[in-house]
Design a protein around this nucleic acid. Sequence first.
DNA 1: ACTCACGGGACAGCCCGTTCTT
DNA 2: AAGAACGGGCTGTCCCGTGAGT
Lengths: 211, 211, 211, 211
Amino acid sequence: MRIFPMAGASDMDVAMNKGDITRQRIIATAAPIFNQRGFAGCSMQDIMEATGLEKGGLYRHFQSKEELATEALSYALARSVRSRTDDLKHIDGALAKLRFAVQRFVETPSLMPGGCPLMNTAIDTDDGNLALRKLAQTGLSNWKKRLAVIVNAGRRSGEIRADVEARQIANTMIATLEGALMISRLEGSKQALLDARISLEVLLNCIAANS
Amino acid sequence: MRIFPMAGASDMDVAMNKGDITRQRIIATAAPIFNQRGFAGCSMQDIMEATGLEKGGLYRHFQSKEELATEALSYALARSVRSRTDDLKHIDGALAKLRFAVQRFVETPSLMPGGCPLMNTAIDTDDGNLALRKLAQTGLSNWKKRLAVIVNAGRRSGEIRADVEARQIANTMIATLEGALMISRLEGSKQALLDARISLEVLLNCIAANS
Amino acid sequence: MRIFPMAGASDMDVAMNKGDITRQRIIATAAPIFNQRGFAGCSMQDIMEATGLEKGGLYRHFQSKEELATEALSYALARSVRSRTDDLKHIDGALAKLRFAVQRFVETPSLMPGGCPLMNTAIDTDDGNLALRKLAQTGLSNWKKRLAVIVNAGRRSGEIRADVEARQIANTMIATLEGALMISRLEGSKQALLDARISLEVLLNCIAANS
Amino acid sequence: MRIFPMAGASDMDVAMNKGDITRQRIIATAAPIFNQRGFAGCSMQDIMEATGLEKGGLYRHFQSKEELATEALSYALARSVRSRTDDLKHIDGALAKLRFAVQRFVETPSLMPGGCPLMNTAIDTDDGNLALRKLAQTGLSNWKKRLAVIVNAGRRSGEIRADVEARQIANTMIATLEGALMISRLEGSKQALLDARISLEVLLNCIAANS
DNA sequence: ACTCACGGGACAGCCCGTTCTT
DNA sequence: AAGAACGGGCTGTCCCGTGAGT
C-alpha cells in the first residue's frame, strides 16, 4: 500500500492489506477491553460491539478468544514496556535515567485504560492460561533487564556503588511502582504514586557512589 | 461443631447453630477459590464441588453469587490484614515493628492460595462490582492506618525523624511488598520479595532519627 | 400427579412430573414444525419461538436437535399411522375395512400440518440421518402389515380372491394414496386424492372373490 | 445465448462460449446434489467441492444459491419428465403406450441420484420457496398432460372406454408410481415398484374398451 | 436444612451466503 | 476466476437463580 515507508515508522505503518488492517484494528480495540475486564470477564460480544464487527468477521482473523486475547495482550505489553523505557538514551547519567523512568511512570502510569497490563495479566492468569502468563513473564523480564542494564552501566561508570545488585534495584523499582499504581487505582488518587516516587528517590540517593 | 466456645474466640468460635456453621464453612471454602480465579472466573458449580453442597443448599445461605463472594472476600481480607499486623505489640520500637512486618510479609506473603486478596480484588473489580471494591478499599485503608500508627508512634518517641510522613512510609511499604509479591508469583520465585525486603530496610534506616 | 390413571389413557395421561409434561409439550409443538420444514430447514430457534422456551430450557430435555427431531417424528408417525388404521375393528368385512381406510385417508390425509410425516421423512432423510430414516421405515412397515392382515383375513374368509398377494395390495394402496397426497398438496387441490380413491375402488373390486 | 442451434442438438451441444459451458457444467453437477439433500440441506460449499470451483467462481454465474437451485431443478425436471414420456411415439396403441410408460418408470425410476426431483421438490418446498415450487407444479402439469393426451387418443380411437376420465388415469398413474418409488427408496427394494406395476396393469385392463 | 429438577439467558465457536478485491 | 473478507444465524454448553419436594 505504502510505497516509501517513512523512517521510524511504527508497527502499523508497514504495508498491509485490508485484512491485516482489520486485524490490527481489532487488536487495538480489544486490548483495553481485555485489560479492563480480564479474560473471563470480557466476552466476544463486547469485542463485537467495540469493533463493529460481527462474529464471523472476528473469527476470520482469530481462531479463538484466547488467540485474540493473546495478541491484544502482546500489543498492550509492548506499548506499555516501551513507553516506560523509551527516550532514556538522550539522558545522561544512570541515576538520571532511573529518576526519569520513575518520573515517567508516576506521570503516565499506563497508556491503556484499565491499568498496567502486566500486573492485570499477572493477577488474571494466576490460576491458568499459560499462554497469557508466559507473555506477562516475558514483559516483566524485559522491563527488568532494561533497568538492570542502566544500573550496571552506572556501576561501571562509577556513578553507582559497586556493591549494589542491579537485579535488586530493578525488582524494587518495578515492585514499588506497580504496587503504588495498584493502590492509586484502588483509592482513586495519585497520592500513592507520588509517595512511591519520594521513596524511590531516597533509594536512588542511597546507591549513589558519593553518598 | 464446637460445643464450648472458648473465651477470646475468634469470629468462628462464637456459639453457632447448624445453619451458621454451614454458612461459615461455605465462606471459608469459597474464599480461596474466589481469590484464585476471581469473581467472573469462578462459578457456583466450583463452590458446589468444593463444599459438597448442592445449588439449593448454597442459595439457602446466600442470596446471590455476589453476596457469597462479598462474604468470602471479607473473610479473606480480614485474615490477610490481621496476619500482617498482629503480634506486633510485644515488639519494642517502631522501626523494629516495621521491620518485623516486612519480615513477616516476605516469609508468609499470603495465607490464602491465590495471592493477596487485596491486590486480587483491586485488579478484579477494576471495571465494576462496587461492593467488592469497597471492601478492598476498606482493607487497604485499615492496613495503611495500622502502619501509619506505628510510624507516628516512632516519631513521637523520637525513634523516627519528625519530618517523615507516616502516610508516605505506609504507602511505600505496602506498594513495594504487594508489587514484589506480584513479581514473585509471576516469576515463581521469592527473589523479588527478598530484594524488596533489602530495599525497605534501606528506607527504614533512612528514616531513623539517628541516621 | 394423577392418582388413578383412567383405562385407555393415551400416552400423555400417565402420571408425569413437570419436566415430563414440558418435554411432551415440546415434542407436540415441534412435531408439525419439523414435519413442515424438514430437519435441516428448521432451527432450534424456530422451536424456541413456538414453545416459548429458551435454549437452556430446550436442551435440558433433549441432548441435541437430532434427539428432539427423532422424538417429534416418532410422535408424528405414531399419530399418523394410528389415525389411518384405527376404528376399523367395528367394520365388518375385509373389503369394507380397506374401503374405509381409503375413504379416511382421502378425507383426512394428514392430521399434522405439513403433510404425511412418513413421506416427508422418507424424502428428507434420503441422504443421511439414519435414526430418522429407521423410524420412517418402521412406520411404513407397520402400516403395510396392518393392511396386509386385513387382506389376508379377507382371503381366508373367502371375501378376497386367494390368488391375491396381500403385500401387493398394501403397497399399492399406500403408494397410490401417498402419491396422490403429494400431487394434491403440490396442486393445492383434492382432485388427485379423489381420483386415487376411484382407482383404488376399481382395484378393490377386482380382487373381490365374486368378481 | 443460442446463436445457431444445431439440428438434434441436446441442451449442452449448442454453441457455447467458455462461460456458458462452465455455467452448464455447474448446473449439471449441482442438480443431483440438490436433488439428494434438498435446498436447505445442501450448502454452496458442497457445490464448490463437487465442481472444483471457488465461491467467487460460482457467484460469477449465479446471483444466489436460489438461482442456482432453480436452474438445477429445472434441468433435473426436464430430464426426468422427458425420460418418462419420450420414445412413446413409435409405439402403437394408447394402452400399449401407457403400459410402456409404467414399465419404463419401474425399470428406471429416476435418472438422477436422489430419486424423483418432482417429488423431492414437492416435499422440500412445502413450506416456502415459491420459485422452486412453481417449477415442480409445471413439471407435474406437463407430465399429467402428456398422459392425458394418450388416454384421450385411446378414447377417440375406441381403444379405451369413453366413460373414463383422462385426468383420473393420469393422476392415478403418477400417484401410484411416485408413491411406489418413495416406498421403494425407503425400503431399499424394488418390490413396491413391481407391485405398483401389477396394480396399474389391472387398472389399465379395466379401462380397456373390450373389457 | 438440603436436594434436585427446571428454566432463562449468555456465550463460544462454527458455518453459510454473499460481496469485494485482485 | 480466485479467494479474502464480512454479516449473520445456528448449535450446544455453561451458568445463575428459583421452587417444589423431602
